[in-house]
Design a protein around this nucleic acid. Structure first.
Length: 900
RNA sequence: GGGCCUUUAGCUCAGCGGUUUAGAGCGCUCGCCUCACACGCGAGAGGUCGUAAGUUCAAAUCUUACAAGGCCCACCA
């Protein structure tokens, strides 16, 4: 650990002022990092001293900016990491960046274009130099933004999918898959983006509905000599520009209208080609005109039909989206222009039967927005079915568990898909495919004599131009970040497999399924044990946040406005299992208020601590009293219960529940009750034992709060006691389960109820807060009476009483308001204070409510089957309820009678 | 076409394989600048848990059907 001085801590904010996170939050990330508190040491794991807890951060794009989805997922991840670190795990959160092939290439290309530089003009190497320069200057800003949120990554492990280690892992992976027979080259229809001139995987393509037309085109039937027979087949199409690539017309085999034409020949409009009529049962008789033009070169569906009928495949499209020579008269035209032209020509030729408006589902690149063309081209594929097998088993057997569980089925569906993965991309920014072609002296390469190798086979070979899909590095992320393919690195041995993956459901198929496959195939183990699937963050109306809608909420803006702690706590509170989050930015006020509450609560006792001018405590508090007071026993019990509840909630990834539990404990129990009881009278000093207990309690509170709100808790931590350098809360342990005092806790609950009863009466009758009144408690047993009497001063203060008298079944004062508390009654004399008639009405209502309750309980108890079949304990509870209710009614009725 | 999710207070949502007369935050009402906090304190109002049937001693919770809203995948000539 580097030599650290106690960090600068601003003096306690003057009383009456709100907590200001800006100054506080700025300094802690740097401090934690310098102190090395996030460092994970593989040796401690390898020596068996600690269990690892490992999360690999889904690497954001280098081009990315932090959005609310990141903020949510990082909140969850950091919460889990800090929590487990405090629990004594060797916690490692691996940060990093994804090179994001297409996205980054597009961003840099656009940036260069504004300077008049065209990618193709400068060539591959020069362009890549620009990308690297761009990455060095602007890339990775998102990781700084994550530090701002308080992410406790071990930044020494930061990786980039294009760094040397990852690149080597990628090359190695491709070669090894090839050697295993799992990589092949094939001519298939791929999703072609004519703008970027690259292939895209299905996951990179969005299907959007756009208004278009459905044209019905007439295909004349011709005889053996090629002469029209007078018959025709009408065909419906949304893509007339592909007519020149038609190789058949297909009808349904059962279609009476066309059955006699099957096997005959039709003339393809706009061409001089004659093609057969074939029968295939995928044809829908009731759609359009009932017949389909078969264009295997430009439609996946047709490609399958073509294969079944041994039809040729014609492709009339150039990679840039213009038509090629096969398109005859339309060669050289852009696909959109060709469409217009062909429709006009068909119309002129009298072959256009009908034009009707039609909503066309159009495939669009999620990156460039270009309309995707199915294009026949040679690409490299990974065979997925053999890889999916083990992953599927791991998911089905629960070796990898999903939270919430329902994503298990969704994952199984993805893994069961069986489709191969096209991995080559016609881009420059990415991992170049490790395929080498021998070149002849004239420069021509032999595409079929390729060598697959990480390194160049030597002079005379040239590497494939294409790069690999971005996800081809991402799927190695959980282990390539730890040094794989070197199995022997300490990091790999200590921290693999990881513990949990936190991600949104949107990349279940494109990323998570592939990590499972890669992990099991390459390392023999699933890369993580749990997958926690978060919901997506939507806007207030439930719409996706997007740039085009302008409805995004910037987490950094929110952090500036409310504090990073507030953003984190609010998001944690909203993170219920698997539900999408409709985010209203004003919701962050809740988190801000909580941080403020925590801050102000410190002042109740903190102002009695001795400090130096900088606000640092200079003296340790003394010992706590050997026997805790009632409120101390109670709050300690609540602390233990709270820690247990948070443990349970986090163990089940019930993040919002954990946050709620912490919130209730801090606000309701510690602030509303403990501190209200513990704080000294105005002007008085806090006694040493109470101060010591408060500091100790607050230390536990801060440990508990820290994973949720690291900054404010760390700041307060240093205000509690003098601390050695490096003794940060971020490195401190989770609160240990302390002793519990069930009897005292129950007694304090009675105190709370008595106080609430008096307050209720005061509010009911608008007794001025400043007015002291008297109250009498008629306790049901001596022990309760004694306990209450022992804290008489506390009750008097909290309830605003001048005098509290306590007795066992004591006589009630005349003309009192009465409130029942369990088996006890609280009486507040009201003679001369208020209208007794009003109290009579209130009592009547109260009695009626209790009576209704009693009736419902008695109905159960007189139900023979309930008494005989329900568990004994349940029946006993009901009996107790009936007895209590009866006693309460009796007390209230007695008081009603007394009021006259 | 296949699958999944949601429906609980005015709003946003919790409610964990069943047991106090269903909870929180925000909003609302009443009273308070009570020397930690008005980003606060105290007291309240507000819900036949989408509809219908079933299982059970007991259903917001389990089953089935239906309705409304949403998501994903496939298809879309």
């Amino acid at each position: 650990m580097p030599a650290m001085t106690t960090p600068e801590t601003p003096a306690a904010a003057p009383s009456g002022q709100a907590y200001d996170p800006t100054a506080v939050e700025a300094k802690w990330s740097a401090y934690w990092e310098a102190a090395g508190v996030f460092h994970a040491d593989p040796e401690r794991v390898l020596r068996g001293e600690r269990e690892p807890f490992v999360i690999a951060m889904p690497p954001p794009n280098v081009t990315g900016r932090l959005h609310m989805g990141h903020a949510l997922q990082d909140t969850v991840q950091d919460l889990l990491i800090r929590y487990h670190r405090a629990r004594g795990f060797e916690a490692l959160w691996i940060p990093g960046l994804d090179h994001a092939g297409i996205a980054t290439q597009n961003v840099v290309e656009r940036a260069l274009r504004t300077q008049g530089i065209e990618r193709k003009a400068i060539g591959r190497e020069a362009f890549l130099t620009h990308v690297w320069a761009w990455k060095a200057e602007y890339g990775g800003a998102i990781l700084e933004q994550k530090r701002r949120l308080g992410d406790s990554c071990d930044w020494r492990y930061e990786r980039f999918t294009m760094d040397d280690g990852l690149s080597r892992a990628v090359q190695h992976t491709f070669v090894s898959l090839y050697e295993a027979g799992l990589v092949y080259r094939g001519d298939y229809l791929v999703n072609w983006d004519p703008d970027n001139q690259t292939v895209l995987s299905n996951e990179e393509v969005d299907n959007v509905e756009r208004p278009g037309f459905l044209w019905t085109v007439r295909y004349p039937v011709v005889d053996a000599a090629g002469q029209p027979t007078g018959e025709h087949v009408d065909v419906a199409t949304t893509r007339p520009e592909t007519i020149p690539a038609d190789v058949a017309v297909a009808v349904h085999p059962d279609d009476e209208r066309f059955r006699h034409l099957v096997g005959q020949t039709v003339h393809v409009p706009t061409t001089d080609r004659l093609v057969p009529v074939v029968a295939d049962d995928v044809i829908k008789m009731d759609f359009g005109a009932g017949a389909l033009k078969v264009t295997p070169g430009h439609s996946e569906n047709d490609f399958e039909i073509g294969k079944r009928h041994n039809l040729p495949t014609l492709s009339i499209l150039n990679p840039d989206g213009t038509l090629n020579d096969l398109a005859g008269a339309y060669a050289g035209m852009d696909r959109a222009a060709a469409k217009t032209r062909i429709v006009a020509d068909l119309d002129a030729a009298g072959l256009l039967v009908r034009t009707e408006p039609y909503t066309v589902t159009t495939p669009v690149s999620s990156r460039s927005g270009a309309v995707i063309e199915p294009l026949l081209s040679p690409q490299w594929y990974v065979r997925m079915a053999p890889l999916a097998e083990k992953a599927l088993a791991a998911v089905r057997e629960g070796t990898v568990a999903f939270h919430p569980d329902r994503w298990k089925n969704e994952m199984a569906r993805w893994l069961d898909d069986g489709r191969d993965w096209p991995v080559s991309r016609q881009l420059w920014w990415g991992h170049r495919i490790p395929i080498w072609y021998p070149t002849a002296t004239d420069g021509t390469r032999d595409e079929d004599a390729f060598v697959v190798s990480v390194d160049s086979p030597g002079a005379g070979y040239v590497q494939d131009d294409d790069v690999l899909d971005t996800w081809f590095s991402s799927w190695l992320w959980p282990f390539a970040t730890l040094g794989w393919p070197d199995a022997g690195t300490p990091a790999m041995r200590a921290f693999y497999p990881g513990t949990v993956l936190v991600s949104g459901y949107d990349i279940l198929g494109i990323w998570i399924s592939r990590m499972l496959m890669a992990g099991l195939h390459f390392t023999g183990e699933p890369p993580f044990r749990d997958v926690f699937v978060t919901g997506m963050v939507k806007d207030k109306q439930g719409r996706k946040m997007s740039k085009s809608l302008g409805n995004g909420i910037d987490p950094l803006d929110m952090a500036d406005q409310y504090g990073a702690d507030a953003v984190r706590f609010t998001l944690a509170g909203l993170c219920a299992q698997g539900q999408d989050i409709k985010l209203d930015p004003s919701g962050f006020e809740g988190g801000r208020n909580f941080a403020n509450k925590l801050w102000n609560a410190f002042n109740v006792f903190g102002r009695f601590l001795e400090t130096d001018d900088a606000g640092h405590p200079t003296q340790h508090v003394g010992p706590v009293r050997p026997e805790p007071t009632l409120v101390e026993a109670w709050i300690q019990t609540r602390l233990a219960e709270t820690v247990a509840a948070v443990d349970e909630a986090l163990g089940k990834y019930r993040i919002s529940e954990a946050a709620q539990t912490v919130y209730d404990f801090v606000w309701r129990d510690v602030c509303d009750w403990y501190l209200e009881v513990a704080k000294p009278a105005p002007g008085a000093e806090m006694d040493a034992e109470t101060l010591a207990f408060s500091v100790g309690l607050y230390e536990s509170v801060l440990r508990l709060v820290h994973p949720f709100m690291p900054f404010v808790s760390e700041e307060l931590w240093w205000k509690l006691r003098p601390r050695a350098a490096g003794d940060a809360l971020a490195a401190a342990s989770w609160p240990a389960p302390g002793p519990t005092f069930p009897a005292e806790a129950a007694t304090f609950s009675l105190v709370q109820e008595v106080v609430a009863a008096v307050r209720q009466v005061r509010a009911q009758y608008s007794v001025a807060p400043s007015k002291r009144i008297e109250a009498t408690v008629s306790a049901a047993d001596a022990a309760s009476a004694e306990a209450l009497a022992s804290v008489r001063g506390t009750v008097e203060r909290l309830a605003g009483l001048s005098a509290l008298s306590v007795g066992v079944a004591t006589d009630k004062p005349p003309a009192s308001a009465a409130v029942v508390v369990g088996r006890h009654a609280v009486f507040v004399p009201l003679a001369g204070t208020i209208d007794l008639g009003a109290e009579r009405v209130r009592l009547g209502k109260e009695i009626e409510a209790k009576a209704g309750f009693l009736r419902s309980v008695e109905a159960k108890l007189t139900n023979e089957t309930f008494v005989s079949r329900a568990p004994e304990a349940v029946v006993a509870v009901e009996r107790q309820k009936a007895a209590d209710a009866a006693a309460q009614i009796e007390a209230l009725e007695a008081n009603l009678a007394d009021l006259g």
